[in-house]
Write a protein that binds this DNA or RNA. Structure first.
Lengths: 187, 187
DNA sequence: AGCTGTCTACCTACTACTTGGTAGATGAAA
DNA sequence: TTTCATCTACCAAGTAGTAGGTAGACAGCT
């Protein structure tokens, strides 16, 4: 694995536990094992590091969403997989979705990063809108309302559920919150 | 207004915009107008300040919840008021609920504060559980599931909706996410 | 083969500034 | 006279970021 990837991996891990303001180049120096200045060589500023981080994260999420689209055809199964992705990322309340933690502390982020964050949310909402539109057709989810509104509500539920799990350092609240969504699955 | 309250007000404003790691005693010095050392006189450590902040916030929320319970008798109207409280606090995506921002960055918080955060969530869940139990009886909300699960899902929805609004600096996502909840109101 | 320039990854050592927090003095009010 | 809120002046540690240098790899050229 090359250095840049290694730095991004470590930074992502730190960011998802401590937030953007909660990790420093000095922290990275410790976990990556090369000097702070060398990390600046790869990512000249913290803003650029954050940008690379969110860009990579968004790309990975997009890939994950199309993987789900390809591997399941019913809306219900896609939704189940979607929720599972977030639950797995949660690590029992230790870590949060990178975009959740960056959204919460977004005042200290640079404009391009804020823009990428919006992009992430828009991607998710578009994909989920498609899912709920399909659900209205294939009837595998109960009481489907207007797809885009369903999508936004679903994303909000998932992000909020992470926060609850984080606050109590346990994945139980996430599970309980999403059970409410899962209960609507018919198939 | 006394100094302590003035400091808490300013700190709360800063914290809800920038997070716990995102404001300093120096920032407070600027907005309160007295020296950093004098603020330390009132709140010796940042941990104690955070504790006072969350304690006051939780108390206010508790008062708000009982105000709602007293002023409305139907579950639907109580829910409407509950959502309105959060929407008002949002200030168009500028600020977040103090406990949302503290939950997201909770790694840097002291144990007592983490405990208070849990208390805040438990309070909300208890109150909402009561609301949904009542809804099952008075039939003013559609498709009510198990009350506690509904409560957790509702809290997650509201907290996540704030995050979405924050990311896009607009209250529209909050409105759209909660419309999904409001659509279930019958009365 | 030997030489030369460029590039990359890394280093030590630093800067300018911010962080939370403290010591000790002053003045006013009780 | 004691208590309190405030001040100035400081501290050690941490912040992002820079300056300038070193060692090795990989050209292209003679």
């Amino acid at each position: 694995m090359d250095r840049k990837t290694e730095i991004l991996d470590s930074a992502e891990k730190l960011a998802r536990r401590h937030g953007y303001d909660g990790f420093s180049y000095a922290d990275l120096e410790r976990v990556v094992g090369i000097r702070k200045a060398s990390i600046h060589h790869h990512f000249p500023s913290k803003a650029e590091l954050a940008e690379a981080l969110v860009r990579r994260y968004t790309d990975r999420m997009r890939a994950e969403l199309s993987r789900i689209s390809v591997s399941h055809s019913s809306a219900a199964r896609r939704l189940r997989d979607y929720l599972a992705v977030y639950q797995k990322a949660l690590k029992g309340g230790e870590a949060l979705c990178l975009c959740v933690v960056f959204s919460a502390g977004s005042q200290s982020l640079s404009d391009p990063v804020v823009e990428l964050l919006k992009q992430y949310h828009d991607d998710s909402i578009d994909w989920l809108s498609g899912l709920f539109a399909q659900a209205a057709a294939d009837q595998t989810i109960a009481n489907v309302g207007e797809p885009k509104r369903e999508a936004i509500a679903c994303l909000a539920l998932v992000e909020g559920a992470q926060l609850l799990s984080r606050a109590s350092r346990s994945e139980i609240p996430f599970e309980e919150a999403t059970q409410q969504m899962m209960a609507r699955i018919i198939d």
